[in-house]
Design a protein around this nucleic acid. Structure first.
Lengths: 329, 329
DNA sequence: CTGAAAGCGCTTACAG
DNA sequence: CTGAAAGCGCTTACAG
């Protein structure tokens, strides 16, 4: 039924080890035989069995992408969709497949990682989880499974690709200042996410450079209630506020916008800055500028780094920082 | 290094075939030994090698999800994100992994399917591609690889899960009629997509039931230009139009909305009906109602059907149709 | 119930 | 360069 290396060997009248070498481009086969075998395999539509190769070589030809559980829920869903497809395409281009690891609802990321390690079913991992237990990366290191993080965690040694959180925020806030806003508050997601801290730094930097001393930073958890309450309190605490910089997108941002659009608030015409751009910003009746992230690049770059690692190279720099784009409306 | 079945057998002082049977819950092992072996494996954190199992049993423990190439681009990205994570979770719950297949830019879906068939690296497939060449499903049938389609193609015999396109559209249009709209045009995506045809049918049915003879249906391709042109022409052709039903979401819908918001058009206050709901509809300054699809259910149901097929059962009904929800704004 | 043996389809030293 | 052989870690008839 299934065409195997044995049939190829038989037809070509060589040993199957010779076929294997020819197919894998290894030395130790005459150019003539190689050509013969290659064309035969081509003609017969031969494709090696993934499982057999994996077992014999202890390389699976599969890379894994670890998603945070929230990936499926938030409107930032489009974020993960772009990451997934770009990684999948890069994987295919390198002759690999992409396995998706998503922790079950409520669980953290440790379970899937542990299973993957023990079952040995991926060669390497791209980790999209935004917060990561150092124990997990330690496990991966111990087991010699290469991984690349999307986003960066300063407390952990790892390869990573990230966007320029600080620079992007700085540019955005600088633009708000240049547009005439003078009292810009910053609403940030939880400080445990490194990117929120960096974006707050960018905010501070822009104010400092412009010689503006007025500032206000507040962190809030990623829940509808906390986000809404935070915006409400910021507004109440600063009657003279004229702009708000929100460090995150997705549902969190939408909740903030909801509050800003409330009847009592809307007349104040608060300017909005957001770290994440959406096309529907066009529909909002408020001045708004945003940071657009190069989503497909993030996935593609992470994959490239991982494949370098798999090839035994040490990609440099260890941390890739991608530029973002300021979108003005 | 890696713990294998041999070590377990040695420690338990039994043959490895006995260990295998015990672990896999097969008969032919005394309850006592089974318990012993199971607890030993548990204690030692033993997890069988995925590749070895796959090679020996010719079951990979992996299901594939085939995405259309557009998945990463459109705003409907959140659609795929929800499908992917829900399928991944269902797969995990069944002890399987999820492999993502995404055809390279410009290519169709045939390449990845062919590779998967020949490499034998999935046990079954969930096909998310919206348009499908019958040749592909024929290949899968021939190779005995079970598959479930998301969406339904009447020209192909297959298992599928879909939403109630006709009923949803009918309900939506009926609601528009009940709200006082009398001249409702329908802008549909390409007729090659079965769901577009079904949604148009729902539109017609609602008009018919209400005894409204005025109708206007137009199909347009999924490009920015075609969508915009279609809306422009519909508006120009029907100066008395008071509502528009768009059968699709994503970028296509956004392009339509752009045209409706154009200065010359906006004053007319066209009511909008959309098959796909987005939270940002709240921001639009136009009357709008929409259909919300049960995204996570779609993925979960498709996975359940596939696992039934893998277990040798024939899930019935062959086509699952999920209810949608009418969201009124 | 129990275990020895063959086999899944490859890769990889190792002789020749 | 070429090929015979062992081995990857399991599963699955098949005897006992």
């Amino acid at each position: 039924m299934k065409l195997t290396i044995n049939e190829i060997a038989e037809i070509a009248k060589v040993a199957k080890s010779t076929v294997s070498k020819a197919l894998n481009g290894q030395k130790g086969v005459s150019e003539e035989k190689r050509r013969e075998i290659l064309s035969l395999a081509e003609r017969l539509n031969y494709e090696p069995s993934a499982s057999a190769q994996a077992l014999a070589s202890s390389r699976t030809g599969i890379i894994g992408l670890l998603l945070p559980h929230e990936a499926g829920y938030t409107l930032a869903g489009s974020y993960w969709s772009a990451i997934i497809t770009s990684v999948a395409e890069a994987a295919n281009a390198h002759g690999h497949s992409l396995l998706i690891l998503a922790p079950p609802a409520g669980d953290d990321v440790a379970g899937p990682v542990e299973t993957v390690i023990r079952r040995r079913n991926v060669d390497g991992l791209i980790i999209g989880a935004e917060r990561l237990d150092p124990g997990i990366t330690a496990r991966l290191d111990a087991e010699d499974i290469p991984f690349v993080l999307i986003g960066r965690d300063p407390t952990i040694k790892h390869y990573s690709v990230d966007v320029d959180n600080r620079g992007g925020s700085e540019g955005l806030v600088a633009h708000l200042l240049a547009s005439g806003y003078g009292r810009i508050a910053c609403l940030a997601g939880p400080a445990e996410y490194p990117y929120n801290r960096e974006r707050v730094e960018g905010y501070r930097l822009a104010l400092e450079r412009a010689g503006v001393s007025w500032n206000s930073v507040r962190h809030a958890g990623y829940t509808s209630e906390e986000g809404r309450r935070a915006v409400t309190e910021i507004l109440a605490g600063h009657p003279d506020l004229d702009a708000l910089f929100v460090t995150a997108g997705g549902e969190f941002l939408l909740d903030c916008i909801d509050v800003l659009r409330l009847p009592g608030v809307a007349p104040r015409r608060i300017g909005l800055g957001a770290f994440d751009d959406y096309r529907f910003f066009d529909y909002l009746d408020m001045p708004i500028c945003a940071i657009r992230q190069p989503l497909r690049d993030i996935g593609g770059t992470a994959a490239l780094m991982l494949f370098a690692l798999l090839a035994g190279e040490a990609p440099r720099p260890m941390h890739r920082t991608l530029d973002v784009e300021l979108v003005i409306r």
